[in-house]
Design a protein around this nucleic acid. Sequence first.
DNA 1: TTCCCATGTCAACGCTTGTTGACCTACGGT
DNA 2: ACCGTAGGTCAACAAGCGTTGACATGGGAA
Lengths: 190, 190
Amino acid sequence: MPARRSDQTRAAILTAARERFAADGYERATIRAIATDASIDPAMVMRYFGNKEKLFAAAAEFDLRLPDLSELPRDQLGAALIEHFLDRWEGDDTLMALLRASVTNQAAADRMRQLFMGQLGPAIAKLTGGGPDTAVRAGLVATQSLGLALCRYVLALGPVAEMPRAAVVAWLTPTIQHYLTSPDPTTSPR
Amino acid sequence: MPARRSDQTRAAILTAARERFAADGYERATIRAIATDASIDPAMVMRYFGNKEKLFAAAAEFDLRLPDLSELPRDQLGAALIEHFLDRWEGDDTLMALLRASVTNQAAADRMRQLFMGQLGPAIAKLTGGGPDTAVRAGLVATQSLGLALCRYVLALGPVAEMPRAAVVAWLTPTIQHYLTSPDPTTSPR
DNA sequence: TTCCCATGTCAACGCTTGTTGACCTACGGT
DNA sequence: ACCGTAGGTCAACAAGCGTTGACATGGGAA
């Protein structure tokens, strides 16, 4: 299939959509604004993507691209995961768009779930051997990762937003490491 | 000042507003829907609260009601804080409304910041003696607490949402304890 | 009773939104 | 040169929004 001339327009729309959804969330990001950013007519967006819902679905496609954790020394898992998350957050607004939208949009929330349960879950399963607590561990990592993103990038909570990247890694490493490798505290309360 | 008859209506509006903001976020929660829930006319909302912005400000008033942490044994701080947060989240939709709105609404984000920096910060300062890392510690506690709320109550991430309260406390206690009492890892890297 | 003000109702406004369909334009194959 | 079609423009639609102002009502003070 030859490269159509319209692919350029499609790409421009997707980029503008990602930026708007990331900055404004699902409902405040208007098709008109996205079209203006992409220097085209709003009707083009409809022609290429059908409706706003499908546009978001296309713009919010994302892959965590998790490295193979089973090849890492066990005590470096936490640091590696955080570094990777920070990498995936910066330089691409897709996760930002996903987070901002997932709070009020059902489809975005679904995709967020799929990201952390369907991608992070299996990656962790390779470490734990697929024990029954695997999903719980993935969920716990999600709470800390998303909480960090929320406070650092969305809410811009002073100290968290200004903290240098190295400090974030230093503080969060033990936490993630704990969720990944500590024995399940609910099976042996003491 | 005698109890006016309208106070009942005001209260009904505020309750309905909190529920709608909590369930739908700021923009999708409409004044018309709130008025219907409160069994009154939309114009009443305007008369009592001026506009949507002020209605939200009134509905989202909140106090963390943090206990005096300095009276607790140092090794029970983490568990006590989590228990308290879970208590404040359940049985009152205000925090839910605040979280859902703060992702797209500036005023809500401001209030969230004020909650965690202006209330949690000072409470932690009484523990650390007000060192320069106090605000950072408060921020870190915020990341884990809000991340938990996001995954458990908003996104309903399977395992995190279904985990019994006791399991949440058991898993998160070491994390919060770490943020509160561990020596700053950035000042002595090794 | 009379009057007044707090309380509440109603219909409409101006605006923005997602979405649609009719229309224009230009270029590549024949 | 012709023409079909991919690509793009334009104006308008219906619906929903926050918000407003004119109008009803009803109970307590005089």
